[in-house]
């Protein structure tokens, strides 16, 4: 761990908490651009199953990712009750399908614990776990989702 991390260990961290297939996930609030209602996406040919297609975000073509599928919890069946969380990853905007957004939480940086083998298949895409009010939050590591760069290799 670098010096910088130690310095900011006690700094506060704010996340948006959302739910997918009964799991509580958290994503850094700084990465979130907006949360919008789900709208039908246009499927793309020849892409991995967790890329559900693209939607029109005020003139911008936004790819939509099915996080449940990516994390190994099965394909979600989005309806109008679902939301799309628009996040910024490496200068690109990507939409994440979620069952719903439940909370905004603040906790010290040091509260993030290693995943161990708790989250199994999803662990590769997680930064760590946070235990808060009897709940276990899975903190997403957006840059590891491989929504864009890994796909290029795959193609």
């Amino acid at each position: 761990m670098s010096d910088i991390d130690i310095d900011i260990d006690n700094a506060q961290r704010q996340v948006i908490v959302f739910e997918i297939a009964g799991h509580q996930l958290a994503v850094d609030i700084m990465a979130v651009r907006e949360i919008r209602p789900w709208s039908p996406s246009t499927p793309l040919p020849g892409v991995p199953s967790f890329v559900r297609g693209v939607v029109n975000l005020r003139g911008v073509v936004l790819p939509v990712c099915d996080l449940g599928e990516r994390l190994g919890w099965g394909k979600s069946n989005p309806s109008e009750r679902h939301v799309i969380i628009v996040v910024q990853i490496d200068g690109q905007q990507v939409g994440l399908i979620a069952d719903g957004v439940s909370d905004i939480l603040t906790f010290p940086r040091s509260a993030v614990q290693p995943t161990g083998d708790v989250a199994a298949e999803a662990a590769a895409f997680l930064e760590g776990l946070v235990l808060q009010d009897q709940r276990m939050l899975l903190v997403l590591a957006l840059d590891r989702l491989g929504l864009t760069e890994n796909l290029q290799v795959a193609a």
């Binding site: 246009t42 793309l44 040919p45 020849g46 892409v47 890329v51 693209v54 029109n56 003139g59 911008v60 073509v61 936004l62 790819p63 690109q92 905007q93 990507v94 929504l147 864009t148 796909l151 290029q152 193609a155």
Partner: peptide, 18 residues
């Protein structure tokens, strides 16, 4: 609209539009 802006090039497609 470019697919590369937020995603990547997709075989068979030249882009997208609204």
């Amino acid at each position: 609209k470019s697919l590369e802006a937020n995603f990547r090039a997709v075989a068979g497609l030249a882009g997208a539009t609204t």
